[in-house]
């Protein structure tokens, strides 16, 4: 069993308009020292997944089922108090928007100190020293002075660093970063990505990075999980997903993206239509209304949900087409077009 093991996770929200199946049968694992990248568009269920691992949907309206095993402990059945005690020390999260996820009335230092003292029986002075130390480690200049600043006194990049410092203050074994750099400029994003990579190496923690940016995923991830309509459609190593992708949705994502490392093409190759609403996920394969190859599998595309099946060495794909067909399409049709870019 992996350090984090999620099995058949389902998160459904009952609403007035119907049942929103945000996550519908998701399984994955992450080892210590490894990074999993979760990619998907808005509404694919990627953020809800991470929030449920931290137990943030406990006691809410969400209906959770399945299993989340963290270091041999099951979290869905565990009590709210117990999950809370794990937060910070065992697992921590870096949110997308640091301004709204920090308390505006407390200094950055106070917020780090509070979390540290909950998990460590130390005096305020010791905790303060630790907070200054952490702020320095994430590259905040003059940490001894900035520890007494309020979040609004920091710039966007600094705030994101402060939040990383906060998340790492208790050396969590599992770190989840939900769009950690989306709100940042590219030069600052590069600094934060380097920082996360260095810190992960140092702490040997398991890292889950959730993003819509394939570039960010490629920079950090060992494994990649592509989500669509609340389900995993492709899962594999970074090399599998970038060099041998087999799901038409992954092809579409790769074709939609202009790239700096290749000669520019005349046209991008977008996916037609828009992502589905989670109240009305299309029947059968959720991707079939947007899939250019849906006719190839006839009625099955609209009536039968394809299984997530192994194609080779841990590389999983949820598609009705046969392995040979997918590989043929990739090698002969998709890859040549993408590579001329």
């Amino acid at each position: 069993m992996s350090f984090l093991d999620v099995k058949d996770l389902k998160i459904h929200f009952p609403t007035d308009d119907g049942l929103v199946k945000s996550v519908d049968g998701l399984s994955f694992g992450v080892e210590r020292g490894k990074t999993l990248g979760i990619v998907g568009e808005s509404g694919s269920g990627k953020s809800v997944t991470s929030q449920s691992i931290l137990g943030l949907h406990k006691g809410g309206r969400a209906r959770l089922s399945g299993e989340i095993w963290l270091d041999g402990e099951e979290l869905i059945e565990a009590s709210t108090e117990h999950v809370r005690s794990l937060r910070g020390k065992k697992m921590a999260m870096i949110f997308q928007d640091p301004l709204s996820s920090m308390h505006p009335y407390y200094t950055v230092g106070q917020q780090i100190i509070e979390a540290y003292r909950i998990h460590n029986d130390v005096s305020k002075q010791v905790a303060r020293k630790h907070a200054i130390d952490m702020l320095g480690r994430v590259g905040i200049p003059e940490p001894a002075k900035r520890v007494d600043s309020y979040p609004h006194e920091f710039s966007g990049g600094m705030r994101q660093r402060a939040m990383i410092a906060m998340a790492l203050s208790c050396d969590p074994e599992l770190l989840i970063a939900d769009e950690p750099t989306t709100a940042l400029d590219v030069t600052v994003q590069a600094q934060i990505l380097d920082l996360m990579r260095d810190l992960q190496r140092e702490f040997n923690s398991a890292l889950i990075i959730i993003t819509h940016d394939l570039g960010v995923v490629a920079e950090l991830s060992d494994d990649i999980l592509v989500m669509y309509g609340g389900k995993c459609v492709e899962y594999g190593t970074a090399e599998d997903v970038f060099y041998r992708p087999e799901h038409p949705y992954t092809w579409g994502l790769l074709g939609s993206m202009p790239r700096l490392d290749r000669e520019p093409t005349e046209r991008l190759l977008p996916i037609k239509g828009s992502p589905p609403s989670l109240i009305n996920v299309p029947p059968g394969c959720a991707f079939h209304p947007r899939c250019p190859y849906a006719e190839r599998t006839g009625d099955r595309a609209t009536t039968e949900v394809p299984a997530l099946a192994e194609t080779e060495g841990g590389h999983l794909v949820r598609c009705h087409m046969s392995r040979e067909e997918r590989r043929g399409l990739w090698e002969n049709e998709i890859k040549p077009v993408l590579e001329t870019q």
Partner: peptide, 15 residues
Amino acid sequence: NALMSAVPVPDPKVR
């Protein structure tokens, strides 16, 4: 130059 080198490249080998 710095801006361009900061853009993450969607290619795991390149990184």
